[in-house]
């Protein structure tokens, strides 16, 4: 094959891929909707297996907007230099972060909210539940308010799953994101401030998750 022939072959291949991608319909998964699930009893399981305390400062500048941010975090597509800069900042608060019991905060908020409604009965053990709500804590910590601001606010990034009593995942929601209402410069974050703001965002998120199920 001549060089020209090879170039033509590559171009034709690229065009076929391009046409395939541009005409590829959005993947319509046959997902169960939350409203379709008939909960009899629900058990809540919180997983911290992939929990990662992080500070997102320099990495915020890599994306066009914060819209891309959570996806970038999930995919680990950030540059090493910016990630190292952010890690250095996170290190100064890591000891304080280790003392924050996000699981208990989320669980308490969810249990209290479910208890205030008679919509879904809670099971005391997984074996007694018709369904299990699995809450996976992913990234959490401090995130720049937006690209233009230097102020940070607390955030929490979770994955929610519903498992039926056959142990099959029947519903999943990735990137359940919550952000705190307050914001401050990174330098102003003490152990107390980080703790109180993370507690507030965890409590708010726990309530919000439960309300999504109650008003599904």
């Amino acid at each position: 094959m001549t060089l020209f022939g090879f170039a033509r072959y590559r171009m034709a291949l690229a065009m076929i891929i391009c046409m395939g991608l541009s005409n590829y319909p959005a993947i319509a998964k046959q997902e169960t909707q939350l409203a379709e699930i008939e909960f009899e009893t629900l058990f809540i399981e919180i997983s911290e297996e992939d929990s990662n305390f992080t500070v997102v400062d320099a990495r915020m500048d890599e994306t066009a907007t914060a819209a891309v941010f959570f996806g970038v975090l999930g995919a680990g597509l950030t540059s090493a230099g910016n990630a190292a800069h952010d890690d250095k900042k996170a290190d100064t608060l890591r000891e304080a972060a280790a003392k924050i019991d996000l699981s208990s905060l989320l669980l308490d908020a969810m249990n209290q909210t479910f208890a205030s409604s008679e919509d879904i009965a809670m099971a005391s053990g997984q074996d007694m539940a018709s369904h299990t709500l699995v809450v996976e804590i992913r990234n959490w910590g401090l995130l720049r308010k937006n690209k233009e601001s230097q102020e940070m606010r607390s955030f929490l990034n979770l994955t929610l799953k519903i498992r039926d009593n056959k142990n099959e995942i029947i519903w999943e929601k990735k990137r359940e994101n919550a952000v705190g209402d307050k914001s401050s410069l990174f330098e102003d974050y003490t152990e107390e401030k980080l703790t109180s703001e993370m507690e507030a965002v965890a409590e708010k998120t726990g309530r919000y998750i439960a309300y999504q199920f109650i008003y599904r």
Binding site: L21, T63, A64, T65, A66, A67, V68, G71, V72, L77
Partner: peptide
């Protein structure tokens, strides 16, 4: 404060994002 759509193209897929604050 924010009303933005963006996407990131991967090797065989595209991830679309929307964000409103």
């Amino acid at each position: 404060n924010n009303f933005w759509f963006d996407y990131k193209t991967g090797f065989v897929s595209v991830e679309f994002y929307g964000s409103i604050q």
